[in-house]
């Protein structure tokens, strides 16, 4: 155990929180600058009532937003992205330092898990930004990550240390890293899904607040949310399978209906229901998306309430 490195790991997380706050402010400025003058709002309503922006694939913010507004905010979105990149690096550095401090993958307790999930959400966002203009998504990613990290530091913090015997296995790296990555992708999916539900409501009402003008159309958002989910779902499936294999190694039985297993199962079934709903004729995309949102609520419950209050073999993950 190297306490100096562990201390630096904590400093890196505090810095990441500070930088994420700046990123959030920058993206907030971007959105507020994008608020058009009154006359423009009406234009936008017409566009929306007509069925969202044009061709799929084209950058939505460009196709839907008048040039001058984009220019007013673009600077801030660039600042937001720079801070986001820096935050991702800082969280990554913190994970690395903690891993070096304790000579093991930094995935042994809820605190480390949340940090790792935040890292992958940020990496996913920053990476995807390189291919597409995601200025519209910035604040909706940065804010939840910021909240997650603050919660991790305040409520879940666990001193850096070695692992208990049940966790001393290479399955830790396989099972938990997959869980973290899939939770990160589910998080991005849930963010876009919620934005879809919001924009869909605006479109159907025929009116939207000014900042919403930078968002892609509902149809585009829905497809994007789906794409995230079909990446995350097999990852989660693998997480559950790997967990079962490990459970047999460590606890003698591959499935014991331990509360954590119950919830992994519930999450899996709810997301399976989402994919099903999407393929079922007569079920609207809105309803299907609500199921995906329910799935994400289950993920949150799984990592908060279940970790901390339900008694089971996974209980060590809590405090």
């Amino acid at each position: 155990m190297n306490t100096t490195l562990a201390l630096y790991a904590n400093y890196a997380i505090y810095s990441a929180i500070a930088v994420l706050t700046l990123a959030m402010l920058a993206y907030a400025l971007y959105l507020s600058r994008a608020v058009p003058a009154r006359g423009e709002v009406r234009d936008r309503e017409v566009v929306m009532a007509g069925g969202g922006p044009g061709t799929a694939g084209a950058s939505p913010s460009e196709s839907a937003t008048p040039v001058e507004t984009v220019n007013a905010g673009a600077r801030w979105s660039g600042v937001g992205l720079s801070f986001s990149t820096l935050a991702a690096l800082l969280i990554g550095a913190s994970l690395l330092l903690r891993g070096l401090a304790v000579h093991r993958p930094p995935l042994g307790n809820l605190y480390e898990f949340v940090c790792a999930a935040s890292f992958f959400v940020m990496v996913g966002f920053v990476g995807w930004s390189r291919r597409r203009d995601l200025s519209w998504l910035g604040i909706f990613v940065v804010t939840p990550v910021l909240l997650m990290l603050m919660l991790a530091v305040k409520a879940f913090y666990t001193e850096a240390s070695a692992l208990m015997p049940a966790l001393q296995s290479y399955w830790l790296s396989i099972h938990v890293s997959m869980a973290v990555i899939s939770v990160a992708v589910f998080t991005l999916g849930a963010i876009v899904a919620l934005l879809y539900l919001l924009v869909d409501r605006f479109e159907r009402a025929g009116r939207a607040p000014g900042w919403a003008r930078v968002l892609p159309g509902a149809r585009d958002l829905e497809r994007t949310a789906y794409s995230f989910h079909i990446v995350a779902f097999p990852l989660w499936t693998f997480t559950v399978i790997a967990g079962a294999i490990w459970a047999r190694q460590a606890w003698a039985s591959y499935w014991n209906w331990d509360p954590k297993e119950v919830w992994s199962f519930i999450i899996w079934v709810v997301y399976a229901a989402y994919l099903h709903a999407r393929a079922t004729t007569g079920v609207t995309r809105q309803k299907a998306t609500w199921i995906a949102v329910a799935g994400f609520s289950c993920i949150i419950i799984n990592y908060t309430i279940v970790n901390m209050f339900f008694v089971g073999q996974h209980s060590y993950a809590g405090t």
């Binding site: 209906w257 119950v262 079934v269 099903h276 007569g282 339900f310």
Partner: peptide, 28 residues
């Protein structure tokens, strides 16, 4: 029908829930 399958899937998730709230005899 796909709708029934969807309903049953959601029902399965709900039915699994109590097992995480109340202690289970087979486990403890």
């Amino acid at each position: 029908s796909m709708r029934t399958a969807l309903f049953l899937l959601l029902l399965l998730a709900v039915a699994a829930l109590p097992g995480s709230i109340w202690p289970q005899r087979s486990i403890d």
